[in-house]
């Protein structure tokens, strides 16, 4: 496979709901093994952007390419494309009636067409990857938020996707549960998983992001390396936002840096 071809290309994506313009021309590329962190104030369109990328909410204008193939093209099966784009949700969205193992196995079995046995094996490996193998037979409601989110990540991993989209994966978690999820995500990033992560966890961004993208009002305000942002962003708006985050999450950031420094 051509290493120079982006895994994901987002080209001038626009989206509005009624009169409300949520995205006003967003573009970026994600290369193999790259980690992109998207951040910005709430209501800036980050979640909408992720849903546009896998066409859960098709963009009004603009294109999304997965390894050069345009999504939404008449002869591309959108379900096949989505199977190659993992998604991890803010509220986990685990299937409530299925045990952890079945939550992870359902995709490989029903979408990829693996045998029941093979799907279970793959699901078990994915659960081990997120250190949830011991909880395989538990139902989502029997798991903590952090455990549920790790199963959610395993569900995406088991599909062996080209890229995984994370939609604020830790913002619905109690503070003491955030660490275990971030640790799994850090591990994935270091193993070379291609990721697009919407998050306010600046410690995570600093540790593994190749590029950070600040979105506000549906447009990219500023983009750059973590060093660029933390040395001092160009735009006043971004500096203010980072300052606020620091006030709010300062302590956890320190903790994360310790995790990263191991």
């Amino acid at each position: 496979m051509n290493k120079m071809e982006p895994v994901l290309r987002v080209r001038d994506v626009w989206k509005s709901y009624g009169d409300l313009e949520v995205l006003k021309g967003i573009s970026f590329d994600v290369m193999e093994s790259e980690v992109k962190v998207v951040f910005g104030p709430s209501g800036s369109g980050k979640s909408t952007l992720l849903r546009c990328i896998n066409y859960l909410d098709p963009p009004d204008r603009g294109d999304v390419f997965l390894r050069g193939v345009r999504l939404g093209e008449k002869d591309t099966d959108i379900n096949e494309m989505r199977a190659r784009i993992g998604m991890v949700f803010q509220h986990f969205n685990l299937f409530a009636h299925l045990r952890a193992i079945d939550n992870v196995a359902i995709g490989p079995e029903k979408v990829l067409g693996l045998s029941k046995e093979d799907a279970r094996q793959r699901a078990m490996a994915a659960l081990e990857h997120v250190k949830m193998a011991d909880w395989a037979d538990h139902y989502p409601a029997q798991l903590s938020g952090g455990q549920q989110q790790r199963v959610g990540i395993a569900r995406a991993l088991a599909m062996e996707p080209d890229v995984i989209l994370f939609d604020e994966p830790t913002s619905a978690l109690d503070p003491e549960l955030i660490g275990e999820v971030l640790q799994v995500m850090l591990d994935l990033a270091k193993e070379g998983t291609t990721m697009v992560v919407v998050t306010h966890e600046m410690g995570f961004a600093r540790a593994v992001a190749n590029e950070m993208i600040f979105i506000d009002g549906g447009v990219v305000v500023e983009r750059g390396t973590p060093e660029h942002f933390f040395r001092g962003a160009d735009s006043e708006r971004v500096r203010q936002f980072l300052h606020k985050l620091e006030e709010l999450y300062g302590k956890e950031r320190e903790e994360l840096r310790d995790v990263d420094g191991e």
């Binding site: 859960l56 379900n79 989505r82 009636h97 029903k110």
Partner: peptide, 20 residues
């Protein structure tokens, strides 16, 4: 979120209805 997660995995709407 249940249907959203089903669709994100690549299940069709009918499959999502049936399995989820």
């Amino acid at each position: 979120g249940q249907m959203l997660a089903a669709r994100a995995l690549g299940l069709s709407q009918m499959e999502g209805i049936r399995h989820v």
